[in-house]
């Protein structure tokens, strides 16, 4: 995205396959305009989100991390998001003590039908990260560049 170089920040989204990923899809099908800073990683469930995914994302240079899953009680696997809620709440404290602003991390619940809500969450969170600006990075160890050849992922299109 050379056009947006410097204007975009790196936001990583961990989305559950059953609700929020569907919600993001619904937002797309509904053609709701959204900021493009968010890079989505699809997971089976928010219960799959190891809090260390979030820490790793931040240390590798993410400016914000968003985790989204099914509403509590609606989990496809019955209880995944209940566990996730506790873990992610504890994670906020760890980020805080590590010196990563708590505001850079957000978790929320968006169902597959809530395209409008998804648009709102993405817009609000992106605006919040832009207000905070780029995250602090360790001097001498810049953000980890992604070598697309090495990942084996083919660019879409």
């Amino acid at each position: 995205m050379p056009v947006l170089e410097g204007k975009e920040l790196r936001i990583v989204g961990f989305l559950c396959n059953w609700c929020s990923y569907g919600g993001a899809d619904t937002a797309g099908v509904g053609r709701f305009a959204q900021p493009t800073d968010l890079r989505i990683i699809k997971l089976p469930c928010t219960g799959r989100v190891n809090p260390l995914f979030v820490v790793r994302a931040f240390l590798n240079g993410a400016d914000g991390v968003l985790v989204s899953g099914c509403h509590p009680g609606d989990c496809h696997y019955t209880a995944g998001n209940f566990y996730a809620r506790r873990r992610l709440e504890i994670l906020r404290e760890l980020l805080d003590v590590m010196g990563i602003q708590q505001e850079r991390f957000h978790y929320t619940w968006v169902s597959a039908s809530e395209g409008q809500k998804w648009k709102q969450v993405v817009s609000d969170f992106t605006a919040r990260i832009h207000d905070l600006g780029p995250a602090a990075a360790f001097s001498g160890c810049p953000a980890v560049p992604i070598d697309m050849d090495e990942t084996g992922i083919k660019a879409a299109g």
């Binding site: 209880a79 809620r85 506790r86 504890i90 929320t108 609000d124």
Partner: peptide, 16 residues
């Protein structure tokens, strides 16, 4: 972290 409650009184939902 090995358990949960369906209603977590101490955990508040936040806005984005």
């Amino acid at each position: 972290l090995f358990m949960f409650r369906q209603q977590e009184e101490t955990i508040k939902e936040r806005d984005a």
